[in-house]
Amino acid sequence: MKKNISVISMDSVLQEWLLQKLIKEPPESDSAKELLSGIYDMVSGEVNSLLLSTVKNSEIASLNLSDEMKIGELVINPKSRSVTRMGQAVSLTPKEFDILYFLAENRGEVFTKEQIYKAVWSENYLLDDSNIMAFIRKLRKKIEPNPDEPKYILTIWGIGYKFNDKV
């Protein structure tokens, strides 16, 4: 099965190296200027991540990447960073929303706690499994019809979590 997304941490040394490499030796590519601009944005702190894709810009528009996701009783809207369940607004903290959106965007894929942490936080992973577990527990209380028998965010024992792709 092909992975939907791969998260790779990029430190300031790598950002600076890429920036200098693109300035000094720009490749003959239509995307080079766009990548250079994205790296500038990262170095300046305007953004903390970039999404690199082999999908062409003309195809991205048809993917509806920013449109809301309807999954069972949930509606997740990344533009407004809002979630509703059965038409009722669900109040999430920014990190709860980020975790939910990351898992929902990658439905069916199992992630370790470390992978979830690296995808949502820009800092290095802290060896504290209880942090992610607490966020998942709070999320389940807010989005699951029965948090003790989750139907959206599933625990894969011994590995981590996944968003149910059967909903």
Rank of each mutant, 00 (worst) to 15 (best):
44 S>N: 15
48 N>G: 13
82 S>P: 01
76 I>K: 02
106 N>F: 06
118 K>H: 05
58 S>K: 12
56 K>D: 07
37 S>W: 10
97 F>M: 00
38 G>N: 01
94 P>I: 03
83 V>I: 09
88 Q>K: 15
41 D>E: 11
54 T>F: 09
17 W>L: 15
89 A>H: 09
115 Q>H: 07
97 F>A: 05
51 L>G: 06
98 D>M: 06
73 E>Q: 13
64 N>F: 15
60 I>F: 04
49 S>C: 09
98 D>W: 03
112 T>C: 00
55 V>H: 05
67 D>L: 07
21 K>F: 12
29 S>E: 14
70 K>C: 06
112 T>H: 01
29 S>T: 08
20 Q>H: 11
101 Y>C: 02
27 P>F: 07
56 K>H: 10
41 D>L: 08
40 Y>P: 01
112 T>P: 02
65 L>T: 11
100 L>T: 05
86 M>L: 15
112 T>R: 02
25 E>S: 14
71 I>H: 03
73 E>L: 14
60 I>Q: 02
24 K>H: 14
22 L>D: 00
27 P>R: 07
102 F>T: 01
61 A>P: 00
22 L>T: 04
76 I>P: 00
115 Q>A: 10
101 Y>T: 01
95 K>E: 05
61 A>F: 06
61 A>N: 06
23 I>P: 00
90 V>P: 04
46 E>F: 13
96 E>W: 05
65 L>W: 10
67 D>H: 11
38 G>K: 03
41 D>I: 04
29 S>D: 15
17 W>Y: 15
97 F>K: 01
61 A>T: 09
94 P>N: 09
28 E>Y: 09
100 L>W: 04
68 E>Q: 10
16 E>K: 15
93 T>A: 13
81 R>T: 12
103 L>Y: 04
55 V>C: 08
63 L>D: 11
91 S>P: 00
34 E>C: 06
73 E>H: 12
60 I>H: 00
98 D>E: 13
50 L>S: 02
18 L>I: 06
48 N>A: 11
113 K>D: 06
81 R>F: 07
53 S>A: 06
48 N>V: 09
53 S>R: 08
53 S>K: 05
113 K>P: 04
106 N>Y: 04
96 E>Q: 13
35 L>V: 11
105 E>G: 13
41 D>N: 12
113 K>R: 15
32 A>Q: 11
80 S>L: 08
117 Y>C: 01
31 S>W: 10
80 S>K: 10
89 A>L: 11
31 S>D: 13
62 S>K: 13
71 I>F: 03
93 T>L: 14
75 V>D: 03
38 G>F: 01
27 P>S: 11
20 Q>F: 08
114 E>P: 05
38 G>T: 04
58 S>W: 08
41 D>Q: 13
90 V>F: 03
82 S>Q: 07
111 F>W: 03
102 F>G: 04
118 K>L: 12
26 P>G: 09
19 L>F: 15
81 R>I: 06
82 S>T: 15
115 Q>I: 03
29 S>G: 08
21 K>A: 14
99 I>M: 04
104 A>E: 02
52 L>C: 07
118 K>P: 03
27 P>E: 12
85 R>F: 06
54 T>L: 10
102 F>D: 01
64 N>Y: 15
116 I>R: 01
45 G>L: 10
89 A>E: 12
